[in-house]
Design a protein around this nucleic acid. Structure first.
Length: 504
RNA sequence: GCGACUAUAGUUCAACGGUUAGAACAUCGGUUUGUGGUACCGAGGAUCUGGGUUCGAUUCCCAGUAGUCGCCCCA
């Protein structure tokens, strides 16, 4: 036996090498050597899977792009760069996230809204700002068949605001609280924790400009993180005033940067005129030195914005949220007014990981053609939340595990256990099976791997007698009972074993 | 967008310019017929793609692709 197997193995391997040899000979046809020719004549006589080689050939001819999809002469399909699968092993985290977000959003009076992934490109350009990175280089845009220029959403807020206006939500009692969650797309270089498709969860409140709502949004963010088991949470807050009051400030800032232009690295110089506040995001030393002396937004707020910010800080103190004022915090989107903030956690090394951020966008609804409506919003990066959950070994969603396994032996038993399975399942007991497996030993092994308390065994004899063996997997004892009493017996037995387990 | 590093089985890692590319975990099977967890035995399964150097490349070189890290930016 063993010899035979080995022999077949060898043949297989030979075939593989043959494939390679053929590849080679194809390559080398130009500079033909006698040996090579001999090889080809010998080896092509072996039967190679023709369809495969023809596929590779046709693909080779098609385009360079498709080369990456050919592996070992077979079509190797893979995710598009920057996209990834959420595999069964990770679902428990996602489920936990969904659960917590659903809970918290209901608690705080949010209604869920889901908007399309595709919107008109102009929607985002208008909302986010023409001179931002997101619009300039990261937006997935394409032409629809109709000729419309459309884009995959790079964030949720613009769509939510669009929907708010389009469906006349302005007539709803204020404040209007909307929660949204889903995938967003940015054409960025992928890396750890950064994907071209990622997921955001967003809380938005429309129709109130009281700073208490800013504080409330931050409190929700905080509570979501805490319920996920994440600690060491810190907020950075800043106020950038209204568009009107910012004009004055931007003039000052632009003038300041112009005077220091020679000290700024060249890549930032263009930003002086387009978006001077973004220079604050720079991290190199020279730039930071320059920024340190720059005029600060909070020193040039209009009266109402200053009052608003002061109120917010008071509320935050009241809520006992840990925050620092970061006068250089600006966010990557143009629509923010007054309050902007980011939430981050610190790891053991003291490094901060940003998990989300938000702010007021009091002027966005009006910009979109709605009636002036103050608004505040906040977005979490879900993928990063999950990374953080893994890092701190946070609690995952725990699915209820089956406590009963149904094993069967023989054709008749297999048929009968199909109905038994349904009976047990309908009585509300989670039951697992492995009908595909033959050997009882294998089925039991699988059952103990699942960690069930009871295994029901229907063998050939039991199938004829209409009985079932009930085996307790913890004590190892088993008894035979008639099939019609099986469900009741299982229920009773499960309760008893539950007690047993508890005592242990 | 720029720079550095990496690419071997489902996963984590070995090895080598030349006979059959090793292990662990995982998967499947067996250790007497119909009884699990442990143990022992066994099986299946891999050199990213293309080109070059070479008698010979999984190994060396180049390009592509993908991944990791740093910069940039962001969630």
């Amino acid at each position: 036996m063993a010899r035979k197997k080995k022999a077949t193995k060898k043949v297989v391997k030979k075939k593989k090498t043959v494939k390679k040899a053929i590849k080679k000979t194809v390559k080398k046809k130009k500079n033909v050597s006698k040996k090579v020719v001999k090889k080809t004549t010998k080896k092509t006589s072996n039967n190679i899977k023709k369809p495969i080689s023809s596929i590779t050939k046709s693909l080779k001819n098609d385009s360079i792009v498709q080369q990456q999809f050919v592996k070992n002469g077979q079509l190797a399909l893979q995710t598009v760069r920057g996209m990834r699968d959420v595999l069964p092993g990770d679902q428990a985290y996602w489920q936990q996230i969904r659960k917590i977000f659903e809970k918290r959003s209901i608690e705080y009076g949010f209604s869920r809204i889901d908007t399309p992934i595709i919107e008109l490109e102009s929607l985002f350009a208008k909302a986010i700002g023409e001179d931002t990175d997101i619009i300039n280089s990261e937006l997935y845009t394409f032409n629809a068949k109709s000729g419309d220029k459309v884009a995959l959403r790079p964030e949720l807020t613009a769509s939510v605001v669009r929907a708010y206006i389009q469906h006349g939500m302005t007539i709803l009692p204020k404040p209007i609280k909307l929660f949204s969650m889903g995938p967003v797309y940015r054409y960025d270089k992928p890396g750890e924790g950064r994907y071209r498709e990622f997921h955001q969860a967003e809380f938005n409140i429309f129709g109130e400009d009281d700073a208490i709502l800013d504080a409330q949004v931050m409190q929700i963010a905080y509570r979501v993180l805490r319920s996920l088991g994440i600690k060491n949470i810190q907020f950075r807050v800043n106020s950038i005033g209204t568009a009107e009051s910012r004009k004055e400030y931007l003039k000052l800032l632009t003038a300041y940067f112009r005077s220091k232009k020679s000290k700024l690295p060249s890549k930032y110089r263009d930003m002086i005129n387009t978006n001077p506040m973004r220079i604050f995001d720079a991290k190199d030393d020279k730039c930071m030195q320059v920024c340190a002396g720059a005029p600060q937004a909070i020193d040039h707020l209009d009266k109402e914005s200053r009052e608003h910010f002061k109120n917010l800080l008071e509320y935050l103190d009241e809520l006992d949220l840990s925050y620092i004022i970061d006068s250089r915090l600006v966010r990557g989107l143009d629509y923010y007014t007054r309050t902007v903030f980011e939430i981050s956690v610190a790891d053991e090394q003291g490094l901060r990981h940003s998990l989300g951020g938000g702010g007021r966008f009091d002027e966005l609804v009006e910009l979109f053609g709605g009636e002036p409506t103050p608004a505040i919003g906040f977005a979490f990066g879900i993928d990063r939340l999950i990374m953080e959950m893994k890092r701190v070994k946070a609690k995952k969603y725990k699915e209820s595990q089956p406590r009963v396994f149904l094993a069967q032996l023989g054709d008749l038993a297999k048929k009968k256990s199909l109905q038994l399975f349904a009976d047990i399942e309908q009585s509300g007991i989670l039951v697992a099976e492995s009908f595909g497996r033959g050997a009882l030993k294998a089925q039991l092994r699988y059952a103990s791997k699942l960690g069930v308390d009871l295994t029901l065994i229907v063998g050939q004899q039991e199938a004829l007698d209409d009985t079932v063996i009930v085996k307790n997997m913890i004590t190892g004892t088993q008894e035979t009972i008639t099939k019609d009493k099986a469900v009741a017996f299982v229920k009773k037995n499960l309760k008893e074993t539950a007690k047993l387990v508890k005592r242990k």
